[in-house]
Nucleic acid binder design. Structure first.
Length: 157
DNA sequence: CGGCTTTGACCCGCGC
DNA sequence: GCGCGGGTCAAAGCCG
């Protein structure tokens, strides 16, 4: 994952309305579509037979932040954590807590540049964002910290 | 009291 | 076939 291309996530998916995206416009965040799938997905796909184009909604955010958990307005339940071979940091696995919604995400820090938090989303939410006032405030807080650190103006009002 | 973390075990694919 | 690396399960405990 060394070539960060600055492409926009997932042509077909309208699922994300993350505030992170707006920050991504301003600078410093690379968003790239992940082309390699997880093993479980591969398994599912191959058993699912025959090369239909299966849209895997999977995309990666790389965020410069000192905060590991960026609150995106959804509720996540952690289900695992692993130490990576080539990374002193650990990767943590989250699942969306909404029943029936199988969205997952992984969060890990970049091995070399530890300021970068890599967030991998996988799947599509089948429900609206439950944005409480609280979580939204958290987002704003993150944006503030972000813009203070890197001298950009947040695109959120 | 309910939802979430924690944490080791388990599982599975892949390379040797 | 075995071991390694990475993904998930689930029991127990924590915390609001």
């Amino acid at each position: 994952m060394e070539n960060h291309q600055l492409s926009f996530p997932v042509s077909s998916s309208s699922s994300v309305s993350l505030p992170d995206l707006k920050v991504a416009h301003s600078s410093n965040i690379h968003v790239k579509k992940a082309d390699d799938l997880s093993k479980t997905q591969r398994k599912k796909i191959s058993s699912q037979k025959g090369g239909k184009e299966i849209k895997q909604h999977r995309y990666v955010f790389q965020t410069r932040s000192l905060i590991d958990i960026l609150d995106d307005g959804y509720r996540w339940r952690k289900y695992g954590e692993k130490a990576m071979k080539n990374n002193k940091f650990r990767r943590s696995y989250y699942r969306c807590s909404y029943r029936g919604c199988n969205v997952k995400k992984q969060i890990q820090r970049h091995s070399i540049d530890e300021q970068i938090v890599v967030t991998t989303y996988e799947g599509m939410h089948i429900h609206p964002v439950e944005k409480t006032a609280e979580s939204f405030e958290q987002i704003l807080r993150n944006l503030k910290i972000y813009s203070q650190l890197y001298n950009v103006s947040p695109t959120l009002e």
